[in-house]
Design a protein around this nucleic acid. Structure first.
Length: 107
DNA sequence: AATATGACCATAC
DNA sequence: TGTATGGCCATAT
């Protein structure tokens, strides 16, 4: 019997994105790594772009850039949704990442 | 199969 | 500190 076929890139990415807890953010690169394709950050962004957007169940807005900024095409919508979850977003689209200690306590 | 594009990332200047 | 350049990966044509 053939070995277990790895999930398609897109499915793997979606799975990871959906696993991001509310109020938490993750970078494209980080998602790519968790999806099993380190360095495929661009591919991640491409997949998220393919999403329905507002009508999706995938919390794409929790995926931001590695430097904490938001991607220009969606920055507006994204900032709005992030703030709705308690994530502090600067006017310039800068996200103050929620740092959590191993205790689960916010820093 | 090769080229072009993109919601990126890291480094160099 | 901000801008420019190269690299990486996954689709579309």
């Amino acid at each position: 019997m053939a070995a277990k076929k790895p999930l398609p890139f897109s499915d793997s990415v979606m799975k990871q994105v959906r696993s991001i807890p509310r109020g938490e953010v993750r970078s494209y690169a980080q998602v790519a790594i968790y999806a099993g394709r380190p360095g495929a950050a661009r591919g991640v962004g491409r997949e998220l772009k393919h999403l329905p957007g507002q009508a999706t169940q995938v919390p794409w807005w929790r995926v931001i850039r590695s430097d904490g900024t938001l991607a220009p095409p969606v920055a507006h919508e994204q900032a709005k949704r992030l703030r709705a979850e308690g994530v502090t977003v600067d006017e310039r689209g800068q996200v103050f990442r929620v740092v959590v200690k191993k205790d689960g306590k916010a820093l």
